[in-house]
Design a protein around this nucleic acid. Structure first.
Lengths: 161, 161
DNA sequence: GCCGACTGATTGACGTGTCAATCATGCCCA
DNA sequence: TGGGCATGATTGACACGTCAATCAGTCGGC
């Protein structure tokens, strides 16, 4: 265990590194769950709903092609399709046929969706501040951003998409 | 909660803080998904399976009361129950009635489960090193641990369990 | 014009997670 | 001692995610 030098294929994580990994990933999960619970109870929107509604709100005319929406928010198309199905049932959005391409669907922000989004944005931002921003010093916040960037960069380089 | 906190509490996060939050939480999700995919493809175990099998492996006699198992790994009981149902179908574990308390169930590590766990531990650790430890400098790794601790502490104080 | 490949989007099957309800057993005490 | 509450565990309903299959419409080349 003390032979910490790099040998051929390199070594497995130490106990301490493993502990940090677990703390890190579990904390992120807890945060996500907490945001999700708060959002849900205060506004009846899930984080997924929020992301979709945000993109639609910022889109020209409150409407967007399904595949474009998927690209903007970085979701797989089938995931989006399932989610839109659930949102459509709740009348948050509606689907319309696309004139320029009969295969395509246009996703339209519905009145109920616009209203729910309006009501959700302040609670959402407040929750982020309370459970994330307020918990960290400015230095830690910066470090968090750099951490995320490093992890993404490394992931991208080792597993090219 | 001090009065100072309460006053500052009226402010919403800045754009930059929001960006960091999103980067942070999305990166954690991507990492989790990546670990999950690798583990699944190399060993046919999910992270959840791994956690359960780890706890059972370390338990006296490879068996544990269901509620104790839930406490050890920090899961809700219903979540565990659902998961054990799926694992039992795959013969990774089995359930036995508990002699000392007829309400209780004892979860027993099955041979297939022990074997799968053995085969999974090195790939699992390697994946953690590759996508997490190797991506960060020693300082960043330390910072990650402190970040997680701060976030947990803050969450615990504002939302006491 | 027509076939075959490509593309946009949906679907079904299934694993995973939460919440609330249920069920049986254990335990306390009036 | 028996009624009632606490406890251990499971279940059902539903939201969310991934993967593979499907389906319909577009487009290029012959």
């Amino acid at each position: 265990m003390t032979e910490n030098t790099q040998r051929r294929g390199r070594q497995l994580p130490t106990t301490e590194q493993l502990r940090i990994w677990r703390d890190f990933i579990e904390t992120a999960e807890v945060l996500k769950a907490e945001i999700s619970t708060r959002l849900q109870s205060e506004t009846s929107l899930s984080p997924g709903d929020y992301v979709v509604l945000l993109a639609l709100t910022e889109a020209e005319g409150g409407r967007m092609r399904s595949s474009e929406l998927a690209a903007v928010i970085g979701w797989e198309r089938s995931r989006l399709s399932h989610h839109l199905g659930r949102m459509e049932r709740r009348a948050l959005i509606s689907r319309q046929e696309c004139v320029s391409d009969n295969r395509g669907a246009e996703i339209v922000l519905a009145p109920a969706g616009a209203e729910a989004f309006q009501g959700a944005t302040v609670p959402h931002l407040r929750a982020i501040r309370e459970i994330f921003v307020d918990a960290l010093t400015p230095d830690q916040l910066t470090a968090a951003g750099e951490l995320a960037a490093s992890l993404r960069a490394h992931l991208g380089s080792s597993r090219p998409r």
